[in-house]
Design a protein around this nucleic acid. Structure first.
Lengths: 169, 169
DNA sequence: TATTGTTATACTCTATAACTATA
DNA sequence: TATAGTTATAGAGTATAACAATA
């Protein structure tokens, strides 16, 4: 497209001669990423957004977000753990977790039991209903993972999982 | 830690015998990730957050976010492109980009020039000040990338960049 | 009618700080 | 005093819808 700054003396109503660049962009715009090509964060972010979009879409029917899924999975595998432990494990703010658990509790999926070991703690557990929903969520999450494997290619998927898994904090 | 549900008959004020599990968690809590270990999205998300945290911290002194950096880079490499093209390229909502460009324009870093090719378009460009700030940002971003290379290990960094870069949408 | 940029709204997430109760 | 959970707030990001100007 033409840039006024570069043709400041041409009247605005004059016919606009298309330069080669204009014609190219009009039919098949190829935008240069330049320095972003060397930024790992840029590509990891784009990949993460794409993965989450697929996950969110597939688990929309049971209304489970990626964060909620991770919370349900970790509680199920570590019944009785505290909110602080859970928050630290998943990198969620404790304050955020409070509201999240409130929502899950309203849906009768999780419970905060008083810990008999320390009066300040809550022992987190899934309800029977929570376990049943998690079972359904795991099926959908496995389908999501398989879709990602197909989209990325099995070999790239395997390598990425291995590389990302090996990274801790 | 002890879970009340599992010892419902013990009075709350009775002394609490520590089971082995309790003692373990108190000293070195090892929380099981279970199913999350097979979720690429989980690890990619954790990695992306870690990368962004470093980037944000390093570019805080010039007040440039990852999204702002990507916008400045792409405008600089494609002067005169439209907001729609920019938004589509970076996966940013057009409505979001409007507010972002408003902020950058208030800081005299970018300008929206009227396009002489199409009255609906704005031709985006950096100001001289925007170019100067971007130059500084690129230096800090390169330092950030080097830090990531060290943190991940050069080989993992190279492989991840190659794998993630090869993924499109 | 379709597109570009814009405004407005609601919702989620992040980042803080402060408060309570318990230790 | 230190910690666990809670509440409140501000800011950023996402997702929509609707609108005016222009094609």
């Amino acid at each position: 497209m033409a840039v006024s700054k570069r043709t400041p003396n041409r009247p605005k109503d004059a016919p606009m001669p298309l330069r080669k660049k204009d014609a190219q962009r009009a039919s098949a715009p190829v935008i240069e990423l330049a320095d972003l090509k060397d930024r790992l964060g840029y590509f990891v972010r784009r990949l993460q957004v794409a993965i989450f979009q697929d996950f969110i879409r597939r688990l929309a029917r049971i209304d489970v977000s990626p964060a909620q899924f991770s919370v349900l999975v970790v509680i199920a595998a570590n019944p009785g753990l505290s909110q602080s432990e859970l928050a630290k494990t998943l990198g969620i703010e404790r304050a955020r977790l409070v509201r999240m658990l409130h929502g899950l509790e309203l849906r009768k999926l999780t419970v905060r039991l008083p810990s008999s070991a320390d009066g300040r703690w809550h022992a987190l557990e899934l309800t029977r209903e929570g376990e049943k929903l998690l079972a359904r969520a795991k099926v959908l999450a496995a389908e999501h993972e398989e879709a990602m494997r197909e989209k990325l290619g099995p070999e790239r998927h395997r390598q990425m999982l291995e590389l990302a898994r090996g990274f801790d904090g």
